[in-house]
């Protein structure tokens, strides 16, 4: 396939994600595979590139959470087609991350968006869901040896679980990078709680994790 045609395919994939088109995106993914485009390339230069643009639109206050959710739906619909075609072991994940909403909190919309952005950035994700018992974060860290743990809380009450969770995680692996986020948190509280980083939104979470991970490496 010539470079122009390949670029046009990838641009269409990018646009379908940005346009929140959950039907068109998997169809284009199938067409891309049939046309001989490598699945991993279609993910990273099509779907993930689309989510990068979506992140910028969010930062510019063009897109808000409803738009992010629909773009995310489109991306996942595409991933379902492409992922089984990626050759196992051929591409290394950007890093391993455990994420979840802490015990006592069922608000998971922020964590869902964080997951999408890490997915787009090529991380291996262990999503523990919402209202996660603190011991489960530590147990999953023991089992997976993840590089980063991202804790989310929306309530001032539930964020009080974070210092305990962070202490438990650091006891398992002092080098693990712990990020916190959620509406009541800020950088100062993150510091008080012993977190390595704070991110005000899903886009910043990926950037912060990437920066801290590179620094630690």
């Amino acid at each position: 396939m010539d470079a122009d045609r390949r670029a046009a395919f990838l641009k269409q994939l990018h646009d379908a994600v940005v346009d929140m088109d959950e039907e068109k995106t998997p169809r284009l993914c199938r067409e891309a595979l049939e046309a001989g485009i490598d699945a991993y390339t279609a993910i990273m230069q099509g779907l993930a590139a689309g989510m990068d643009t979506v992140g910028r639109l969010y930062e510019q206050k063009e897109y808000f959470v409803p738009e992010l959710l629909l773009c995310s739906d489109a991306m996942y619909a595409g991933l379902e087609v492409l992922r089984p075609q990626v050759k196992v072991g051929e591409h290394e994940a950007a890093g391993k991350i455990i994420m979840g909403v802490v015990e006592g909190d069922i608000h998971d919309i922020g964590k869902t968006l964080v997951k999408t952005m890490f997915e787009a950035a090529g991380w291996e994700i262990f999503d523990l869901g919402k209202d996660v018992k603190l011991e489960r974060f530590a147990q999953t860290l023991r089992e997976t040896g993840a590089d980063v743990v991202a804790l989310s809380a929306l309530m001032t009450t539930s964020m009080m679980a974070m210092p305990k969770a962070i202490a438990m995680l650091k006891a398992v692996d002092p080098k693990v990078i712990v990020l916190v986020g959620g509406a009541p948190l800020n950088a100062e509280i993150a510091r008080q709680y012993g977190a390595d980083g704070y991110a005000p939104d899903a886009i910043a979470a990926v950037e912060t994790a990437g920066r801290l991970f590179t620094k630690a490496a």
Binding site: V102, E103, G104, D105, I106, M155, T156, T157, S158, M160, A161
Partner: peptide, 9 residues
């Protein structure tokens, strides 16, 4: 529990 401050749906 220790960390809940409101009704839970």
């Amino acid at each position: 529990g220790e960390y809940e401050g409101a009704l839970v749906v």
